[in-house]
Amino acid sequence: MTAVLDRLKAYAGVAPATLVIGVFMIAPLMIIFAYSFLEPNPYGGVRPAFSTGAYTKLFYERDLFDEMVFNATYLKITFRSLWIAAASVAACLLIGFPVAYYIAMQPPERRNLLILLITIPFWTNLLIRTYCWILVLRDTGLINNALISAGLIDRPFTMLYTEGAIVLGLIYTYIPFMVLPIYASLERLDLRLIEASRDLYATKWGTLRQIVLPLAAPGIIAGSILVFIPGLGAFIAPELLGGGKNLMLGSLVQLQFSSARNWPFGSALAVVIMAVVMLTLMLYARNARRNGGGLQH
């Protein structure tokens, strides 16, 4: 009797968490997954009829004679998204690691202040912050005006609405996600190991390569995932700084739910992005387990 009661109590204890995860995470995913296998309703929404059309649309389209022909448009967009996300990860890593290292080497009180500074951009709306980049990058923007009045160039240098601008926007948006986990792993790094390495004839660079980087790997990997995933599905930066002409997956999904009125296709795209992300995470987890538990570090 008491055993049953105890079990009930235990269930009651986890109920709120289960409810939140169920309602806010699992249910929407299930809906998206279900929609991706239905037929589009031309006026928005879906028609309750099973179809794999959304997935075939990723690779094929119907030509004038109603025949299925290969269509690389969406693959191209996928690859562009992958490379832009990867480039952002690389750039965030190059900038973020030295920043995280610098912060981790400061005295403790100083560190907290610097970490606070890193998070300050989050206090303002992302849309507004991205609009500001337009003011900086556009042909009559801050940079071009400055260069022209300094006489370094005589016609504006096109920066806005390029893939570079998108990458810049993504770096700007997601760099804290790179800095924070790397900082977390560097902060726990035993500085005496660095001394031991120097004592054993390793130079500063050798120590960075042999000791610091391997021990910071969990943070580096976590940061890379945290930048890569949202970068892949990013919407605001590609839309505003890429001008919508360098379409990325995020914009493509948004398009399907708005003007294109093809919810199943939008859902299918979302499912594909999710599959890619989950695959990446599983690879990482397997790798981490094999390397003696990088995840737990």
Binding site: E195, P214, L215
Partner: peptide
């Protein structure tokens, strides 16, 4: 001279073995 240029090695109090 920096530590790596000194023909001196240390046995550290807390051993400081490289954990990885």
């Amino acid at each position: 001279l920096p530590p790596e240029k000194r023909p001196v090695n240390t046995v550290f109090q807390h051993y400081s073995l490289f954990p990885h």
